[in-house]
Amino acid sequence: MATPNPDLLAALDSRRSIPAKQLSAPGPDEITLQRMLTSAVRVPDHGKRVAFRFLTIQGDARHVLGERIAARGIEKFPDAGPAAVEKDRGRFSHAPLIVAVIAQLGPDEKIPEFERTLTAGCVCFALLQAAQALGFGAVWLTGWPAYDEQVEAWLGLADEECIAGFIHIGTPKLDAPERERPDPAALTRAWSPL
């Protein structure tokens, strides 16, 4: 049996998402970001496919992407009101760093695409944990831009890639309140053969 580590459970139990609008500078420096990513890649990865990569969005690039997304949103949703357009424009302007976790999929004779997608999702979650462990706030977001072919093209995704999540990381402006969590006992059943 491995040595128990209650600190790990405490870290898992204290995880909170901080709304992107409540994240501000400073964000992690390059060394701190690399430390976060070192933890984030320690995920279950059937077949060692490393079916993910990272794309950082920071500085003025956040605002340029926001302008493009606002324009794209007007094309896709011509009935969208000014508030929706402004929401799109500001989508990436709050947190000083956004890490896009890109799932690399495509044909694989041994490892199903779904399993590789789950690995990329685990990377997103591990990155949230790593950010919080180093004193930052973070949130995992997608929204329509994560599924839009034009946005994927702007971000340089290949045909067999998709966005698993945009992880917004920064200094929290507030302490996120606890929210109600599901009761694991109510979600658990023992299987028995008929």
Rank of each mutant, 00 (worst) to 15 (best):
M1K: 14
M1G: 15
P4N: 10
N5W: 06
P6C: 11
D7I: 14
D7F: 11
D7N: 15
L8G: 04
A10C: 10
L12W: 09
S14H: 12
S17K: 06
S17L: 02
I18C: 13
P19V: 12
A25C: 01
P26F: 11
P26Q: 03
P26R: 08
D29E: 06
D29M: 09
E30S: 15
I31H: 09
L33N: 10
L33A: 06
L33H: 08
Q34D: 14
M36G: 12
L37C: 02
L37S: 10
S39G: 08
S39P: 03
A40N: 01
V41H: 00
R42S: 08
R42W: 00
P44V: 11
K48P: 03
V50C: 06
V50I: 13
F54A: 09
T56M: 08
D60A: 14
A61F: 10
V64W: 13
V64H: 14
V64K: 13
R68A: 14
A70I: 06
A71N: 03
A71V: 02
I74L: 01
K76Y: 06
F77L: 05
P78A: 01
D79I: 03
V85P: 12
E86G: 15
K87F: 14
K87Y: 12
R89A: 12
R89T: 09
G90L: 15
G90C: 14
G90N: 15
L97T: 11
I98R: 08
A100I: 06
V101C: 01
V101E: 07
I102D: 03
A103I: 13
Q104I: 15
L105Y: 10
D108H: 03
D108E: 02
D108L: 03
K110F: 08
P112D: 03
F114K: 11
E115A: 11
R116V: 09
T117Q: 12
T119F: 09
A120F: 10
A120C: 10
A120W: 04
C122F: 04
C122K: 02
V123N: 01
C124V: 07
C124H: 01
A126K: 00
L128I: 04
L128H: 05
L128A: 02
A131M: 06
A133N: 09
A133I: 07
G137S: 04
W140S: 05
W140F: 07
L141K: 11
T142S: 05
W144M: 05
Y147V: 07
E149T: 01
E149Y: 00
E149D: 13
V151Y: 00
E152L: 10
A153E: 00
W154R: 03
W154S: 05
G156T: 06
G156K: 01
L157H: 00
L157K: 05
A158V: 04
I163A: 01
A164R: 05
A164S: 12
A164F: 05
G165C: 02
G165V: 08
I167Y: 05
I169P: 08
I169Y: 04
G170C: 05
L174H: 02
L174R: 04
A176P: 11
A176T: 14
E178F: 06
E178C: 10
E178Q: 10
R179C: 10
E180F: 07
D183K: 03
A185V: 12
A185N: 11
L187F: 07
T188A: 15
T188L: 15
R189L: 11
W191H: 07
S192I: 09
L194Q: 11
L194T: 12
